[in-house]
């Protein structure tokens, strides 16, 4: 392990702000893109399921 303590790890020398904000923003963007992809899929399936139900009622 490259750090003596957890506080050391958070401090990252004196560059904690830069390192952690870089990782924080990256995590946010990656997770957002994954969530949007999955939500898009859910939405398409819901729409198609609704259309299908409507078509079956009309029959």
């Amino acid at each position: 392990m490259a750090f003596e303590s957890f506080a050391d790890f958070l401090a990252m020398g004196k560059h904690g702000f830069y390192v952690w904000s870089a990782y924080g923003i990256s995590a946010f963007l990656v997770i957002t893109s994954m969530v949007l992809a999955l939500r898009g899929q859910g939405r398409v399936r819901q729409t198609l399921a609704r259309q299908q139900r409507r078509a079956e009622v009309d029959k």
Partner: peptide, 25 residues
């Protein structure tokens, strides 16, 4: 990869720990 880079990899001889941004950049 990220945990290895952030926690276990050694610091850099010039940049210290700020170089750890490389593992995401």
């Amino acid at each position: 990869g990220l945990v290895w880079g952030l926690v276990f990899a050694p610091s850099d001889y010039q940049q210290g720990n700020s170089y750890r941004i490389i593992f995401i950049h």
